[in-house]
């Protein structure tokens, strides 16, 4: 008997192809648990019987909004404040002192959180900059993501209590957040430093830069080799010379040596643009 979360082979292939063609993200043959955990909420929301019913509906109706909802559900990553503390420590102790010296006359810095999800990475950077005395600089932080749904959440700057416990030092909570009902909301001062927009990282990124630092964490792992190579080149094109690219802890940059110097600072791996 078919269970709610069981996916027929043909439907599994259809979902793989659907996610790949709309996002470039490659989902292997052993990701049943991921499809189940991400798609069952949509199945329940629509009052359907199973993921196979969801596939039938997608095939039958060619419903664009539903197709996008499925892709977004499969491509959204959970994140938290100051994820990978070594990277923030490298920014604090090396990059920011360098930028304070090299850009002290113009006092303008630009940063990009390329897969910002619900915004914690971009807001973490904004808080770090305020804590390090860049409050009177012209700071622009862009947060982009494939999913418009998570960006809506990011723009509000509201987080559940459990999110506030994760990674965020309590003194920063006290200085940069306020209560908003049962949730917490990041201060207007921090929110003003960050702008969120939807973006597909497979498209040309050259018009976005130049940035002093780009976070592109936990994105590359989902792309095929050619898409990774293209993305590395495109990311290089968005950075100032000597700008930093930071990837996720488990990621490596394919062909990056052509465009970047790989360095280790404070235990964090970073790529410095040639």
């Amino acid at each position: 008997m078919e269970t709610l979360a069981e996916i027929f082979t043909d439907n599994y292939r259809f979902l793989q192809q659907h996610v790949y063609s709309h996002s470039g993200i490659v989902l292997d043959h052993d990701k049943h648990y991921l499809f189940e955990s991400r798609l069952m909420p949509i199945v329940r929301q629509l009052g359907l019987g199973s993921i196979n019913d969801l596939c039938s509906l997608l095939l039958k109706t060619k419903e664009t909004a539903l197709g996008r909802q499925v892709v977004e559900a499969m491509t959204t990553n959970e994140t938290y404040f100051f994820r990978d503390p070594a990277q923030y420590e490298a920014i604090r102790t090396v990059l920011l002192p360098e930028l304070r010296q090299s850009k002290g006359d113009q006092k303008k810095l630009r940063f990009w959180s390329a897969a910002s999800s619900s915004g914690q990475e971009a807001y973490s950077l904004a808080m770090l900059l305020l804590e390090e005395g860049f409050g009177d600089w012209n700071i622009q932080i862009y947060g982009t993501d494939f999913s418009s749904q998570v960006l809506e959440s990011a723009r509000t700057g509201k987080y559940r209590q459990i999110d506030m416990n994760r990674g965020l030092p309590s003194p920063l909570l006290a200085r940069h957040f306020r209560r908003s009902g049962l949730d917490w909301q990041v201060s207007d001062r921090v929110r003003q430093m960050v702008t969120f927009e939807t973006l597909d990282l497979r498209k040309s990124l050259r018009t976005l830069g130049p940035f002093d630092l780009v976070f592109c964490r936990n994105v590359m792992i989902y792309f095929d080799t050619q898409t990774k190579k293209n993305l590395i080149q495109e990311l290089h094109g968005t950075l100032f010379r000597h700008g930093w690219l930071l990837l996720g802890g488990a990621e490596t940059a394919f062909g990056a040596e052509q465009w970047f110097d790989k360095q280790t600072v404070q235990g964090a791996t970073l790529y410095v643009a040639h």
Partner: peptide, 15 residues
Amino acid sequence: EYVMKPFDKEILFQK
């Protein structure tokens, strides 16, 4: 540091 209940082991270790 300050941990708000409820919390999990991962949160405690991060703190």
